[in-house]
């Protein structure tokens, strides 16, 4: 087990990871007093290498490697159970989200690669069609996840029963969808560079 080392000049009480999470989410992770209620109720904690409260503990101690290389941040499905029950009102799903986005920005290889693949394929399709294209999601995910025949036995029955449509449907005003994605990209860039990239979004874009 790797030793957590602190030099005499370190300031774990004000570490960069804490500041980063605070900036991205407004959440003060120091408020967490490690009661473990989040981990006790989390449907996925048994599959995680760090339990949810340990992710917060690692953030408290500024342990970047521990956090960003953990499977936990990728396995969280943001079901909100933890946040609903947290006595200190730490929005853990929001923190998990922020940690995932930071890991992507820093190009850190995710401990759960297929989760990232799913997100990428899903959002790519939504950007393109304005809504989900299921056949595209199944095909794209299976290819990129290198499991082309996974769940193949379900494909034909679903097609014959009309559960899947081969032709993608599109929303009417794809301009608005594009604007949303454009703005999201700009915000992400702003976060990285710290500079404002674009003017206020057009009035037609729902906020």
């Amino acid at each position: 087990m790797s030793v957590l080392k602190f030099a005499s000049t370190d300031q774990p009480g004000r570490n960069g990871l804490l500041a980063l999470v605070k900036a991205k989410t407004g959440q003060d992770v120091l408020a967490c007093y490690q009661c473990g209620k989040c981990s006790a109720g989390c449907p996925l904690s048994s599959a995680m290498d760090l339990a949810p409260h340990q992710v917060l503990r690692a953030v408290q101690l500024g342990q970047r490697d521990l956090v960003f290389q953990s499977s936990a941040i990728w396995l969280c499905v943001t079901c909100q159970t933890c946040y609903t029950r947290c006595p200190q009102e730490v929005d853990l799903p929001k923190v998990m989200d922020a940690l995932r986005s930071q890991a992507i920005q820093e190009k850190i290889r995710p401990a759960e690669r297929t989760v990232k693949v799913f997100h990428d394929v899903f959002l790519g399709l939504v950007e393109r069609f304005g809504r989900l294209y299921e056949v595209g999601l199944i095909g794209g995910y299976n290819l990129l996840a290198r499991q082309p025949l996974a769940s193949a036995d379900l494909g034909l029955p679903m097609l014959t029963r009309g559960k899947l449509e081969l032709i993608p449907r599109r929303v009417k005003d794809r301009e608005q969808i594009r604007a949303i994605f454009k703005r999201a990209a700009e915000l992400e860039l702003e976060e990285i560079t710290g500079q404002s990239v674009a003017a206020a979004p057009p009035a037609s874009v729902p906020s």
């Binding site: 087990m1 790797s2 957590l4 080392k5 602190f6 005499s8 490690q34 409260h53 503990r57 101690l61």
Partner: peptide
């Protein structure tokens, strides 16, 4: 000239080493 403190973060289950003045 400093003091090394060896302990354990039992919440994370990892050994801790702090360099203290």
């Amino acid at each position: 000239g400093k003091l090394i403190i060896k302990g354990e973060d039992t919440l994370l289950g990892r050994p801790v080493e702090v360099e203290a003045d």
